[in-house]
Nucleic acid binder design. Structure first.
Length: 633
DNA sequence: ATAGGGTTAG
């Protein structure tokens, strides 16, 4: 209520009451980010140290750094002398602009003025160094603190821990925190939050959950919406949306009010997994609590619509955001452009892209990468390739994603020469391939029947410090299965496990499909059973592959047994799954069994489509029976 | 002075 404070100030003057410097400073502080600061400043009769440091801070916040420095140098502080606080503001501002060296030089100025840099001064510089990636210098400065007569505090250690976290050196995060404990300092809620971030980044979600529980029991509940958000984000990123949802409600029950960030995280998580209805429900709840959606929230909703294939709706939402008049983030456009590209609507993607350019918004690499993807998806590799040059025209640099997307298109045609060409171009531009890239390269070798080069690629990976992951293995295992080399496929499967790579549901899909395809149905069955006994998570595909094989082999009893297990496991069974089974049974003239599945489908509330009805009618007397069941053919 | 959320490739 700063304007009301001005009114009171005026009244006090009218009544000839004297206004204390402290009162003026308080008003000055509230106007420090605006030009009105000077009006307040001029009105102050006796200024003190706080007055000056507030002005310096205000100028820094208004990005008027040079004014701040000259004010400090030339102005009226001569009666009091400059304070360390003013220098801290200036150092902080230089750090935020990325000029850490300039910030550091002010530390000498502080000393020259005969002042003692405080713990704050050091922390500001240490933070600046960490954000600039100079963790070594940051540690050095922290080590020198005692020489300067101050001691590192909890904040110092938190900053260093965050610095290591930013570099992905999570082990050192623990190390820093251990040192902090050794010094007898008490970790605060921020320390815990950084630890929690580390757990989440390493994928140790369960450890994170335990830590969060521990935190809440230590009584951090008053300001713990941030740690809860970190946890929500970790859960959402690993697809554990139900747990995220329950944490969200436990937060509320414990009096931790979710804010815009917490809401956006969960809405995004739901949208990413295609739970659009729940996302909309949460969005409405958020709005009803007067929390206004921002660009991130809108991005999540756009993503949700695109993932559901509701491109018209996504576009309508984007248009309505545009019509509100504020310039939109390129990311919001990227989401819709990518939605078009993924659905093979390259024309629409291009049209929106032109709209972006016309409204003067700068595209980024992701924008172009989506266009590359769109061209590849519509089998237009030549145009996709040209986008690489367009990226350069926009003074942007093609990323590893640009190259990998293109390489993938060539790999799918088995064109290993073009893949190699891009690989060389990429290297020449100083871009390192990732695991992603290598899996594409290996896929190219598989499809192009050049597997003799596989070992060379593995050596390249090793020399670049890229370790094969599950998908690298899946790619080769799939190729071996296709080439009927099931023995080597299973050898690689064992190798994968011996390297502590947990096979994915897709790994099992590939192996089971391979076994079934080449007639090893008994082995597939046994394999599936052993996996189920060990409670390995399997996809619906693993089951339906074996079920389909049973239908083909004429063993409907086993098919029924397994199919009921699929329903039992709560998989989302569609009309396509039923028709896959029914088609095969009909082809073997097992009309009775086909009818059983047809009835099962109806009883589960799944509507038959035209194709499945045709098949049923052709193979049996189902027409009369359908009409009797009250269904219209 | 220190902690949280968005887009792209297998």
């Amino acid at each position: 209520m700063v304007d009301d404070s001005l009114y009171i100030l005026e009244k006090m003057r009218d009544l000839n009451l004297s206004v204390s410097t402290q009162a003026y400073n308080s008003i000055l502080y509230n106007f420090r980010e605006t030009d009105e600061m000077w009006d307040v400043y001029k009105a102050i009769e006796s200024k003190n140290e706080h007055t000056y440091s507030t002005v310096v801070d205000g100028l820094c916040r208004q990005q008027k750094l040079e004014d701040a420095v000259s004010f400090l140098r030339d102005s009226e502080w001569k009666d009091t002398g400059p304070s360390v606080v003013s220098f801290n503001s200036i150092m902080s501002a230089y750090c935020k602009l990325g000029f850490v060296d300039t910030a550091k030089s002010f530390l000498c100025t502080v000393l020259k003025c005969g002042l003692v840099p405080s713990v704050h001064s050091h922390n500001i510089l240490i933070n600046g160094l960490c954000l600039a990636g100079s963790i070594g210098e940051a540690l050095e400065l922290a080590g020198d603190m005692s020489k300067h007569g101050v001691e590192p505090d909890t904040v110092t250690y938190n900053i260093l821990a965050k610095g290591f976290h930013l570099l992905g050196m999570i082990k050192w995060v623990w190390e820093v925190i251990q040192q902090m404990l050794d010094k007898g300092l008490t970790p605060d809620v921020i320390t815990y939050t950084i630890l929690l971030c580390g757990h989440c980044q390493l994928g140790n979600i369960d450890k994170g959950l335990r830590l969060l529980k521990d935190m809440l029991s230590r009584g951090f509940e008053l300001n713990s919406v941030i740690p809860c958000s970190v946890m929500l984000s970790g859960l959402c990123k690993t697809g554990r949306i139900e747990e995220a949802f329950s944490l969200f409600y436990r937060m509320k029950a414990n009096g931790v009010r979710p804010d815009i960030v917490a809401y956006s995280i969960v809405i995004h998580g739901l949208c990413r997994l295609g739970e659009l209805d729940l996302a909309i429900w949460l969005y409405d709840e958020m709005c009803s609590k007067r929390i206004l959606p921002n660009s991130r929230t809108h991005g999540a909703m756009l993503l949700g619509l695109c993932r559901k294939g509701m491109l018209l709706e996504a576009r309508a939402l984007l248009n309505s955001l545009i019509s509100t008049g504020c310039t939109l983030d390129i990311i919001l456009y990227n989401i819709v452009i990518d939605g078009y590209a993924k659905s093979g609507c390259i024309e629409e993607a291009l049209e929106l892209f032109r709209g972006v350019i016309e409204s003067g918004i700068t595209p980024n690499v992701a924008t172009f990468n989506s266009l590359i993807h769109g061209y590849c998806k519509t089998q237009n590799i030549a145009e996709a390739r040209k986008v690489l040059d367009v990226i350069k025209l926009y003074k942007l640099v093609p990323s590893v994603v640009s190259y990998t997307t293109l390489m993938n298109a060539y790999a799918n045609c088995g064109d290993t020469e073009k893949v190699d060409e891009l690989r060389r171009e990429m290297k020449a531009n100083g871009i390192s391939p990732t695991n992603f890239t290598y899996s594409v390269i290996i896929k190219g070798l598989c499809i192009g029947r050049k597997l003799e080069k596989y070992n060379q690629v593995l050596r390249d990976m090793a020399s670049e410090g890229v370790t094969p992951d599950q998908i690298t293995y899946n790619t080769v295992i799939q190729h071996l299965c296709r080439a009927k080399d099931l023995f080597r496929a299973f050898e690689l499967f064992e190798e994968m496990k011996s390297r502590n790579l947990e096979p994915t549901p897709a790994t099992y899909d590939i192996l089971i499909n391979g076994l079934c395809f080449y007639g090893y149905l008994k082995d597939a069955e046994r394999f599936l059973c052993s996996l189920r006994e060990r409670d390995v998570s399997l996809s619906k595909f693993a089951y339906t592959t074996v079920i389909k094989a049973h239908c083909v082999k004429g063993d409907p009893e086993m098919a029924v047994k397994l199919f009921l297990q699929v329903l039992d496991r709560g998989f989302d069974v569609s009309v396509r799954d039923y028709s896959a089974v029914i088609n095969r049974l009909c082809r073997r003239e097992l009309a009775k069994e086909a009818k059983f599945f047809f009835c099962l489908m109806l009883s589960r509330g799944v509507s038959p489509d035209l194709d499945i009805c045709r098949v049923m009618i052709k193979s049996s007397d189902v027409l009369g029976w359908t009409i009797k069941a009250g269904l219209l053919p």
